[in-house]
Design a protein around this nucleic acid. Structure first.
Lengths: 181, 181
DNA sequence: TGTTTATATTGGATCACACCTATATAGGTT
DNA sequence: AACCTATATAGGTGTGATCCAATATAAACA
């Protein structure tokens, strides 16, 4: 469901091929969503068969034709409806916490190893997010008087969300290591 | 994969039926994992066919026989291997951030509504986790001299993880609301 | 008396997604 | 000469999960 939102949301900004969408996702929403290339094409086909997008075929030579997908007005309506729909109750599935919950039987050293690995992950994540956030900031010229538009602020907010959670994870790791004595 | 770990991890504590496992999951790991009842039975069947668990049928009257599942030694080995395996790189899929990323086109009021809904969710989550954590604490009698064993600390740590993340989410919401001006 | 809850298992349908492969060509790299 | 990357699409297969429904009985509740 969310991948449909992602595709419609991106197509709402500009018409694109599946290939473009894949790159666009990697460049913009990768920090909270990832999508397999074949899944993108299948979902895109579903959008078309639901009338939420349509295809403009642009012939090319030497490679397959560009199948440029455009959001339809039904698609814009569906996107709006999805965005306004009540938040679904979230069912978290955290494989790391699962491990931690049961790793006790293996003893303290195995537990420490797991926490160390997690710290590595969280640190890398934090660094990656910070570097993307800095680039975002840098794109805004110092003398840029353009109104800092809502979309831009929200894109930045999703990055900040990841950063704050990564920091919380690291703080929790410190606390937890201490609790192991 | 993680559901297999969960089932083996719980079966390692005590033999159980699928029905028991469902309740056990709800009572112990629900804050980071949920599982559909039919999925539990199917996964349990997979464990048996892989030789990681076996079944003791205990006849009953008036209801289906108890099919009590016991972890095998191969199961204990597999559990240990899984717990020690390198952490898989996590691909986060966050539907809320997806919405937020695209909700800008609907304007500021819709954005605020989304953030409000999220605050409600996060507040409820935090309250629920805190109450479970307090119960966990209360179970430990004030004069309890028993060593605070590793498993217990780790179960508590998974709760603390949820609490810290919920707090981070609320802090992020405050920051984000301010950024909307 | 009728409904709900608890116990216990199982199957079908469907969804979302990941991993791998195939196709086709141009251009650049080793 | 052999390989990799970019462009562009698409199918096969498997896994994990959700939702829904059926079966069967006893006890508790309204």
């Amino acid at each position: 469901m969310s991948l449909k939102i992602a595709l419609l949301g991106i197509l709402d900004l500009a018409p694109m091929t599946g290939y473009d969408l894949k790159k666009s996702i990697e460049a913009s929403v990768a920090h909270f969503w990832s999508a397999d290339q074949s899944q993108i094409y299948r979902t895109l086909a579903a959008l078309v068969s639901d009338g939420l997008a349509d295809v403009e075929v642009i012939p090319q030579e030497g490679r397959p034709d560009r199948r440029e997908h455009h959001i339809t007005s039904a698609g814009r309506t569906a996107l709006g409806d999805w965005l306004r729909a009540p938040l679904e109750p979230e069912t978290s599935h955290d494989a790391f916490l699962m491990r931690l919950f049961f790793v006790g039987t293996l003893g303290v050293p195995a537990t420490r190893a797991l926490l160390r690995a997690r710290r590595g992950q969280a640190t890398a994540m934090l660094a990656a997010l910070r570097s993307v956030a800095e680039q975002e900031q840098a794109h805004r010229e110092p003398d840029d008087r353009a109104p800092d538009d809502l979309g831009r602020r929200l894109r930045f907010a999703t990055l900040r969300n990841g950063i704050l959670h990564a920091e919380a994870e690291l703080a929790w790791l410190v606390e937890t290591k201490e609790a192991l004595g």
